[in-house]
Amino acid sequence: MSEYGTLVDNHTVRFERLLPGPIERVWKYLTDAELRGLWFAAGPMEPRVGGKMDIVFDNSNIGPHPSAPPERFRKYAGPFDSKHVVTIWEPPHRLGFTWDEDMDPKGSVVEIELTEQGDKVRLVLTHRRVSGVSDAINFSGGWHTHLAMLAEQLEGNPKTPFWEAFDGIEDEYRKRYSEK
C-alpha cells in the first residue's frame, strides 16, 4: 500500500489507507457531519441510498490551526458547499456519493470501502468517471490531503493544517501520472 493514490485509468483514481479502528469509529468519521468536518467537509447527509448530502468545505480550518490557501485557491478561503446524492449506503462497510454539483449519478462518483484488518481498518476510496488526467491530478491532491487529515484525527494527533499539507502535492501527482 502506497501513501499515494494511483491512477487506475484516465478517469479513475484510487487510494488505500490502513487506519486505526474499530470500523464503526471510522464509519462515524465518514458519516457524522461534525466528525467529517474535522478532516474533509461537514454538512448533513441523509443515511440512505438516494439521500441528499451537503458537503460544506472549510479547508482553511481543518487541522490544529487555521491556514490560508495558496493564491490560486483564494476563492476557497472560507466555507463553501456543494450538493450530492448518496449512491451506496451499507454501514459500516460501503459509502458512495455523487461528486458532480448537479447531483447526476451518471457523472463523477466516489465510493469508500472499509474492511477490518485486526485492530485496523483498510479504507479504499475510488473516485470514478473524472473527466481526464488533469481532473485526476486535482482530485488526487485533495483526496490525498483529506485522507492524511482523517488519519491524523483517528490517531488523535491533528498536527498539520490542510493547506500546508496540500502545498505541492498536486505537483507530485502531476509527475506520477505523467509517467503513465
Rank of each mutant, 00 (worst) to 15 (best):
S60H: 11
R25P: 01
A33M: 08
A41D: 03
N59R: 15
L114Y: 01
E155T: 05
E111Q: 11
E16R: 12
K175Y: 13
W89T: 04
I88L: 14
W89N: 01
F73C: 13
F73Y: 15
F80S: 00
K175F: 06
G5W: 07
S60G: 14
S178H: 05
F97I: 03
S108D: 06
Q117H: 09
Y4L: 15
R94L: 09
L30N: 06
H146P: 02
G168E: 06
V121L: 08
T12G: 07
G63L: 12
H144S: 09
N10A: 14
L123C: 03
L30K: 05
E172H: 12
R176D: 07
T6V: 13
P66K: 10
E24K: 10
T98Q: 03
V130Y: 03
S108G: 00
T145G: 06
L150I: 01
A136V: 00
H144W: 05
D32Q: 02
D167I: 02
D119V: 10
Q153M: 11
D167E: 12
G156V: 07
W99Y: 13
R176H: 02
P22D: 06
A148D: 15
R48Q: 15
D81V: 13
V121S: 00
A151D: 10
R36Q: 04
R72P: 10
H84R: 09
F166M: 05
R48Y: 08
W89K: 02
P44T: 15
V8T: 01
I137R: 03
T87E: 06
I62T: 13
E164Y: 04
A41G: 10
N138T: 14
D102C: 09
S82F: 13
R94V: 09
Y4S: 12
E155Q: 14
W27P: 02
Y4F: 14
G21N: 02
D102P: 07
W143Y: 10
V130S: 11
F15N: 03
